[in-house]
């Protein structure tokens, strides 16, 4: 009954979007629209904004997201393993010891290389 399960998920996505958009339609019908150009300026603590916000950003955000993606991939290997290892007993434990051990090694390496430092 797998496909029925996911039919519900699909309907949740579509109908959820529609229901979230419904109040926006109400706003469109009810709310006032006053043409005042001042209103559409970008907020910058009350002063006239200078330049664009879209600028170059710190490389650290990128580094953290790169490390995150790698660990996230490791996590998806752990999920299927976590529900079956019980049947394999000690053997499964040692397999996991190696896998998680290498993960921890990578974390320690990143730590020592300063990849986890913000400043």
């Amino acid at each position: 009954m797998l496909l029925v399960d996911w039919l519900y998920v699909g309907v949740f996505l579509v109908v959820g979007l529609a229901m979230a958009a419904l109040p926006l339609a109400v706003v469109w019908a009810l709310a006032p629209r006053l043409a005042q150009p001042q209103k559409r300026t970008t907020y910058e603590s009350g002063v006239v904004p200078f330049g664009q916000a879209w600028a170059q950003f710190n490389v650290r955000y990128y580094l953290f997201s790169l490390v995150f993606v790698i660990f996230d991939v490791e996590v998806i290997y752990l999920y299927p393993w976590s529900i079956v290892f019980r049947q394999y007993g000690r053997y499964a434990f040692f397999v996991m010891l190696i896998f998680v051990g290498i993960l921890l090694l990578g974390l320690i390496h990143a730590w020592r290389k300063g990849a986890l430092e913000w400043t």
Partner: peptide, 10 residues
């Protein structure tokens, strides 16, 4: 492989 990828990323 993931360990190597991590090192490379750093």
């Amino acid at each position: 492989v993931l360990l190597v990828a991590l090192m490379g990323a750093i």
